[in-house]
Design a protein around this nucleic acid. Structure first.
Lengths: 338, 338
DNA sequence: TTGTAAGCGTTATCAG
DNA sequence: CTGATAACGCTTACAA
């Protein structure tokens, strides 16, 4: 038994070869004769040798770390994206390391500095609204980078997402098409993606000639179901004869549904409700709630897939990858009572 | 301007001191004269020097990484715990690194091997049901370890959690006390903590003399709101005159509520519903849903707090830390119609 | 209080 | 195809 950790040199000594050879067996087996390869592998196995990542990183000036920068780790939406990333990363030689920017450009810069300092193999970063400082750091980075969640102007490198403006536009147009006219917007957090949804909402209503700015109710607070209840209360207090709400996300929509039930406001005959993201529960709520399905899992999977492809020198699709969205019309927007 | 990354030696050269001194300024400022200290710090600042973590780890044979091993990163419950951990870790010199064991002992072993190989500063691991192999590895580890989520027998090192058996017992006893008699158990995933909740449920009903094994409906699938609907359907199909359900968690409970609404089964007058964890939305559902509040954020915070205390040699509480739980009775268990 | 110098465990260059 | 040997950037006795 070897005292302490098993090192490369231990494997080498026991296999009767040099450390360099063991290293080659592990990284470039094609450069080593088959029998040496096999013998070394057996000993690696027997000894349970695991490379010291610090030494590897130091010697090779690179790591197998893929850094992920998102504004929240726990929010349903990002949780799904992370799950997608994780799924693919599991079967790859890369370790993912998550950083939580907490919706702050400053925190993003700090994390970026730390991550980049580790010479990561690649980087995934949420959104397209990085600060100038972050942009500068990213521009200097030598590793591939994928921006996720949105599709936008001048990608830093690669990009996979969808148009929040269009998603909101389609949802709002659907409400108009179902006969709703006094359509409110309920928004929480008001991060860049929420702002874009507000844009889409506005565009759709202006096009239909029924836009009324007073129907927009927002808050910087993080969205929760409870907050959905509260925002609906705020809206109703304004007494603007709202007959539908487009919610920035499904948590709010569910809260609106609960609050309507509590106030005996019939959904959808007196109040239409549309959410965003299409969380699993929207389909089974009662009434079921219309939402805009987004492909969060797929976004994570695709992002890390093309990132790894690029890291390993394989060809990747040209230009931003638009995963789109899908309006899922359900009971909650079936139209007003006639 | 220095080409490439700024190294310790660059700082040393410009400050006119040795590399060792710079290292001391950064780690043991008390060993260095005040003015040298100040001068070095200024240059570190100016140059934007950030230590190469790989070199640090290699030279010092330790890291500032705290490893976190949980069965899921996205499940609401763990998401909250992780958030608590993150909050505290942010203001510490430690980096947290998450590992997802996906409810598998085997994956846990593999991750443990990888983590331990990095000589982490500390480890947080969910649950008390580690495999023999994992236990052995943990026993050999030289860093402090905190087991979270549960309180149980022979802690490996430190422990912070609560009793799932007791939580379920109290919830079930509450249903009995409110007059329900045909109380079903709906459980998903059936991980160790769910099993213990089932134990508590069973104990409470046996004590009340109303235990009926046929009322237990479980599935290995992961819990979702949709699954709550499905499990209730399964239960009702059995035609056992169930008059209440204790759900393994709040997702299921919400699904049960929706399904009851759909089937026009009045809650709570014909069907009582109790969840577990007390997610934010339970309070605003309609009717509001009774649940067992658990202190997930606090669990994460406390776990990493005592871990860091121990790492840094400060005294830590003796024995497991029981954070308890709290039954929150709401409309959904107000009793049967008389 | 400060500097010198020897590693830490790999990888990579260059011969052979 | 394989083996020496010199980095990689930092920490830490040990000396001064």
């Amino acid at each position: 038994m070897i005292e302490g950790r098993v090192r490369l040199s231990d494997v080498a000594r026991i296999a009767g070869v040099s450390a360099a050879t063991v290293s080659r067996v592990l990284h470039r087996p094609d450069m080593v004769s088959a029998d040496v390869c096999e013998r070394v592998n057996k000993i690696v196995e027997e000894l349970g040798y695991i490379a010291n990542p610090a030494a590897q990183a130091l010697a090779s000036a690179r790591t197998n770390v893929i850094g992920i920068l998102v504004p929240s780790l726990t929010n349903n939406v990002f949780a799904d994206v992370l799950r997608g990333i994780y799924t693919i990363a599991q079967d790859s030689p890369y370790d993912v390391q998550f950083g939580n920017t907490r919706y702050s450009n400053l925190e993003e810069e700090n994390l970026l500095r730390i991550f980049l300092n580790q010479k990561p193999a690649g980087l995934i970063i949420a959104g397209t609204d990085q600060s100038a400082a972050s942009r500068a750091m990213l521009a200097q980075a030598t590793c591939p980078i994928v921006q996720i969640m949105e599709i936008g102007e001048d990608p830093i490198d690669m990009m996979v997402g969808f148009s929040h403006v269009d998603g909101a536009y389609v949802a709002t147009a659907h409400l108009v098409e179902r006969g709703y006219r006094r359509i409110a917007f309920l928004g929480a957090r008001m991060d860049p993606r929420t702002q874009r949804r507000l844009q889409g909402y506005t565009a759709a209503l202006e096009r239909a000639g029924v836009f009324d700015e007073r129907l927009i109710v927002t808050t910087p607070r993080a969205s929760t179901v409870t907050l959905g209840c509260e925002l609906l209360c705020l809206l109703l207090e304004k007494d603007l004869a709202a007959d539908a709400v487009f919610c920035n996300n499904d948590d709010l929509a569910l809260g609106v549904l609960f609050e309507c039930q509590r106030r005996r406001i019939p959904v959808p005959s007196r109040m239409g409700i549309c959410g965003f993201n299409d969380l699993e529960m929207m389909a089974v709520a009662n009434p079921s709630v219309t939402s805009v399905k987004t492909f969060r899992l797929e976004m994570g999977e695709e992002a890390i897939r093309i990132l790894i492809d690029k890291i390993e020198g394989r060809p990747v699709p040209e230009g931003p990858i638009d995963l789109g969205f899908k309006l899922v019309a359900r009971q909650s927007t079936q139209g007003l009572a006639r």
